[in-house]
Design a protein around this nucleic acid. Structure first.
Lengths: 205, 205, 205, 205
DNA sequence: TATGAATGAGGGTTCATTCAT
DNA sequence: TATGAATGAACCCTCATTCAT
């Protein structure tokens, strides 16, 4: 054989990862992936039955871990009746550590999973993360405003916005940095900022 | 005649705006835009030389304003030697009000410009906004850490991360909400959160 | 428009009919159909959403009639408890007249439907015809052997063989002749042969 | 070595036979044939220059016998000036026994040759059989109508139809049944039916 | 000015065949 | 001799764009 079969598979997945990250799943082209891998398009199909199966093989391990982590968090969340401030921060830290752990194992895959999977069965993964984050916030908000009034639409919107932006923030960090330690530090910082603001950084007086 | 032509142009642009917002620039189809506009695909090319030129005409005004606002902010920024905390918040409010103002004038165009322009020459506009935001933060951070040590790489990265995520946060809000007041409130809340955290919302004790 | 849209549609269907008859549905190529029609492959898709839809549009009217006729025959068959010889011949004449009628309305379509639809949803149509024919024969055989013994496996096989060959015989006639009257005469002759043999034709003594 | 090579050839041909019978020559895949044979696709080409050559080696012996038998029948036919009824039946029995003999020697090959060779140079073999059968019928018809009138077009067409359908009938039997005795019985029955009809089967009165 | 039919390049995919090993 | 990876042409199909009318 011209190239070790396993080598070639990895080679193709590497190209695919690159192209998916560049253009997204839908707009990445098998021909371009083949070119990048230095082979002909038809040859890809010796290794992967279809574009979607290729994505699957690329993302499945990461996705499965993701689902597992999410499940844990959801179950933990159900066990909590009233949520203390520290508690909600702790839950956000779980989200954070999910991201960081997944990143450390498979950074680019996670990035595709979160940001570039439109048009594939994985396109709603980020939404799942956002939803869980929202659940955390909702519980936190709800608990502490219980005495005063029912959780209002505005509060809901705010929680939604915060969940979306904090999750998206994590995704950006994944997209823009490569070093694991840097990612970890920045995600941690992001979560902290959402809790305490950047005031302490710019206001030492 | 010119009037008719202008009417038709607006009509087409309206459809294009809708489709770009729905599917993004790259995946929106000229035929669908034509259908939505109630004309034929070929006819679009009487008014716009290409899909890209069409996007250009759609976004150019908003983009120019955007550039103008950015320029103002940059110049203001240059005039500030030492930045006080309140000052940096004020600057962020400028970013915020840029977004809000642009939104109020051309909400959908801004959303396309920021979120749906992948594959077009505008795909990096968000980056420009991020860069300016970064400049603000850099100056703020720099000022207040001046006494202790030189601005370190880590600080730079943090500033970059904060800039990216806060800008992306605004873009998400643009993408996910339609009502102007809601947008305004949420963007404001986002900026405030970045300064003071959500602590006051969940910790009333 | 360069060519009347409806003309072109008919033109394409004519080419398709030709190619389907030549190579069968599966092996006929859209490119070749386009070439035969004097257009580009892409243009076919302005007229038909897919190869399968094209076949559908080509065969549906014929198929619907076919189904209708089959239904009638099946219902008539249910109403018959004991089948006289003349009766079974009459039933075969119904099959025969179904074929002849359908042929007179749409000869090539019927030929594709019966002989060249492998790989499409219509691939089992001939089988339906064979099954109904088998039902007729089974009833006829069963009735007249009732007194002696139960219908044996061999009888079943014979009935099956006769049904298959008589139906296929009709299909061959459809395939090889074009003139309606000829078709009608030959199909009639075929059915008669199956009942009385060709003996009377070669044995006048 | 030659022995090994021959073993392998037979092995491949066995797989090819299976696949050709399953899907037909055109739609059978070399890769599947290789898989079934337990070898690699490339290796097939050590033994056969192409798919077509492979089919050739598979069918050639059967085809040559077939041609030989046909020749015999044709020559016998030439020696017969006036054909008696029994004679024509006898000739049809020769056709029949050709089929049965070939089947007993190489059942699957015969089935491919007759039914599954579309897209190959053998796709018209069935036609040859039909032509000989037609010659028999023509002579029989001609003989017995000699006194009355010239052999008419209609008679020709009838003879043609009968030849086609009886041959196709035999082919169907080859296609649909596997057991030699069953084949033999059904082919015999088919020929008898063409001579005397199924009347005796359903009309015992 | 407007139509919408037509094009051509490119999409994902399959498969007989070739060829480096 | 045998492997199986690789090729290239063809498959069905889509879409921005062009152009005869």
């Amino acid at each position: 054989m011209q190239v070790l079969k396993d080598e070639m598979k990895k080679n193709i997945l590497r190209s695919a990862l690159r192209e998916f990250n560049r253009l997204g799943y839908r707009d990445a082209s098998m021909r371009q992936i083949a070119d990048t891998a230095g082979i002909t398009p038809g040859n890809i199909y010796r290794y992967f039955a279809s574009k979607e199966k290729m994505l699957h093989e690329l993302l499945q391990p990461t996705y499965e871990q993701f689902v597992g982590y999410m499940l844990e968090i959801k179950q933990d969340l159900e066990d909590v009746s009233a949520m203390e401030p520290d508690n909600s921060l702790a839950f956000l830290h779980k989200i954070q550590s999910t991201i960081v752990r997944l990143f450390n194992q498979s950074s680019l895959e996670l990035s595709v999973l979160m940001n570039k999977s439109e048009g594939s069965p994985y396109e709603n993964v980020k939404q799942e993360l956002t939803t869980v984050t929202y659940s955390i916030l909702e519980k936190a908000f709800h608990t502490f405003q219980n005495g005063t009034a029912r959780l209002q639409d505005e509060e809901n919107q705010s929680a939604h916005m915060i969940a979306s932006t904090i999750v998206e923030g994590m995704c950006i960090i994944l997209r823009e940095y490569e070093d694991g330690d840097t990612i970890e530090r920045l995600v941690d910082e992001l979560v902290r900022i959402y809790f305490t603001g950047i005031g302490d950084r710019i206001n030492r007086s």
